[in-house]
Design a protein around this nucleic acid. Structure first.
Length: 259
DNA sequence: ATGTCACTTTACAAGTGA
């Protein structure tokens, strides 16, 4: 089973590249974030023509998450109980192939101390509380998405420059550690040691060319799923301006293989 | 640190969020 997570930064602008990704990698499930469209404007027809069902939690102009799957999802859930900002479309869950999949687009936070940053911490606390209350760490659960947190110094290109800043600050990292402490495994770290790989490069200042990247897009799984994980990698070419139709997202897809 | 991008709107440029 192959699962992809990708912050597309507008599904409308990235539809052509998304179809290309489906054709090249033939994933079973694709979790996408930052749709920036309402449900009714989601291009479900074109994805269906490519062989994928869509489950969508959209929002006009911002946020928005969807799960594409070869087989239809069952038990689809929009949002999560306890969300401190339930009007923002950030979480969509569904089951397929005996696996519970949770697709998340975590609050960005903007800057340490900003109101959005305080919301980010509360939001992550609520997500953690929901997982602990309504899920079992012994069940097959995979939670993927744009966490907007680089969990460790190895996940940023320049740890000193990023120390204490939004996306890399200690309070955010504590929240990620709380998820891991409950019983989730960071699948990328099963297969890659040391610096990187990164999944996000800012559009500005030639950040991609300079490899000023961060690892913000994560795949976290309970032990039964982690034991089945045969590979995880970043499809870095997808961030290149030249390797697809139209412009790239500022995030690259993360691809997870499960036996 | 900021060589950008995509969105919205009493729209045809400017503000917002990332």
């Amino acid at each position: 089973m192959r699962v992809v997570t990708w912050n597309v930064n507008s599904i409308k602008m990235r539809l052509s590249r998304t179809l290309g990704l489906l054709g090249r990698h033939e994933p079973d499930v694709v979790c996408v974030q930052e749709l920036k469209v309402a449900d009714e404007a989601f291009p479900a027809g074109q994805l269906e023509a490519a062989g994928y069902c869509s489950s969508v939690l959209g929002q006009v102009g911002r946020n928005g998450v969807a799960i594409l799957s070869r087989d239809p999802l069952t038990d689809v859930a929009r949002g999560f109980p306890g969300d401190p900002a339930p009007e923002q479309a950030r979480v969509l869950s569904g089951s397929v192939g005996g696996l519970r999949i949770v697709n998340v687009y975590v609050v960005n936070g903007v800057a340490v101390g900003a109101p959005q940053y305080e919301l980010k911490l509360r939001w992550l606390d609520a997500l953690s509380a929901w997982l602990r209350a309504e899920h079992d760490r012994n069940d097959p659960l995979l939670i993927v998405g744009d966490f907007n947190v680089a969990p460790e110094d190895a996940d940023v290109h320049d740890p000193e420059r990023w120390r204490g800043r939004n996306l890399a600050s200690e309070p955010e990292r504590e929240r990620i550690r709380a998820l891991l402490g409950w019983g989730l495994v960071d699948l990328m770290r099963l297969h890659h040691e040391g610096r990187g790989p990164f999944t996000f490069w800012d559009y500005r200042a030639g950040a991609f060319h300079r490899d000023w990247g961060l690892r913000l897009d994560l795949a976290l799984a309970t032990r039964p799923v982690a034991d089945r994980c045969t590979g995880v990698w970043v499809e870095r070419d997808e961030r290149k301006p030249t390797s697809g139709a139209g412009k790239p997202s500022d995030h690259a897809p993360v691809i997870v293989d499960l036996r």
